[in-house]
């Protein structure tokens, strides 16, 4: 590989990693608060892709993007209220099954409504504009994704660490019951978590699919799994961890694909998961949690 192609691949990798990071944030936040692997998150991401397809058919992108984000947030909150809230007191496995049920429902609903055939993803022309720096060329979305990811993460970190709402979120994730006793409105905090997660998933979906060209009812599954692995890799419950994990997975996947091992790039992600679970179960920057009896 020449240095130009290496730089090209690094750029693609960072861009993919940025999209992964945004989705991974949704997993990490929900897991941090509800101790739930939100299997439906990958399908929220997929649905955001479809929303964009339909929104762009009737309106220009500056209106379509905020609308898609709003609709995705609505979907995320509705799922939380309908499928997870009634099960707060139930065993954790029930909520997990419920989230799988939602994922199954969204996939089947998408197949029913939009058919299983791939739908072409609309091109957002400014995002597709190609830039040439030296001998490296890339579209705007490639440069924009990591920058946007970092900006969003800084805002989110500020929200979590320096506002009252963030303090409440941290309290709930530290100790659910005590937080409740201290007068924190648990349900509100959980809704906020889903709002943030779904918004990030919607933005991630726009950035991800702009490079992919098409959406199918199952195109959320694999990226969703990878993003969960990214969250575990960085340390589940931690936002910077999710971002770090997202970038690591995005870059390594791009390089494996470039070297001709695209079949094994997915396998590599799960090898990473197994390795991290053996050697550092709390993730790269996660904190150690002691189990209380």
């Amino acid at each position: 590989m020449t240095s130009t192609t290496i730089i090209q691949h690094i750029l693609t990798g960072i861009s993919l990693g940025g999209a992964y990071a945004l989705i991974a944030i949704g997993y990490t936040l929900v897991y941090g608060i509800l101790l739930l692997i939100n299997f439906a998150h990958s399908d929220i991401f997929m649905m955001a892709g479809y929303f964009m397809v339909f929104a762009m058919a009737v309106m220009p992108w500056p209106i379509a993007i905020p609308l898609v984000i709003a609709v995705t947030i609505f979907l995320g909150v509705v799922i939380e209220k309908a499928a997870y809230k009634p099960l707060r007191a139930a065993p954790r496995m029930s909520i997990m099954i419920s989230s799988i049920g939602v994922s199954y429902l969204l996939q089947n609903l998408a197949t029913y409504l939009f058919s299983a055939l791939p739908k072409g993803y609309p091109t957002i022309s400014p995002l597709k504009r190609v830039f040439q720096i030296g001998s490296v060329s890339a579209s705007l979305v490639t440069f924009l994704t990591p920058v946007l990811t970092l900006i969003l993460v800084f805002i989110l970190m500020y929200l979590i660490n320096h506002t009252k709402l963030g303090m409440a979120m941290r309290a709930v994730s530290k100790d659910y019951d005590t937080a409740k006793l201290m007068g924190i409105k648990i349900n509100q905090i959980i809704s906020v978590t889903f709002v943030i997660g779904s918004a990030m998933a919607a933005i991630g979906s726009i950035l991800y699919f702009t490079d992919r060209m098409s959406v199918t009812p199952f195109s959320g599954t694999l990226p969703g799994l990878k993003c969960f692995v990214a969250a575990v890799l960085g340390g589940i419950g931690s936002v910077p961890g999710a971002v770090l994990g997202g970038f690591i997975i995005g870059i390594s996947e791009t390089f494996l694909t470039a070297m001709g091992y695209s079949t094994y790039s997915d396998a590599f992600t799960f090898l990473l998961l197994i390795l991290i679970l053996i050697f550092r179960p709390t993730g790269l920057i996660g904190e150690t949690v002691t189990d209380k009896v």
């Binding site: 799994l225 692995v229 079949t263 094994y264 997915d266 396998a267 799960f270 998961l273 197994i274 679970l277």
Partner: peptide, 14 residues
């Protein structure tokens, strides 16, 4: 759950 789900996708790919 995640590890086995991933495993099953890998098996399919392989």
């Amino acid at each position: 759950a995640i590890a086995t789900l991933g495993f099953s996708e890998i098996i399919r790919a392989i």
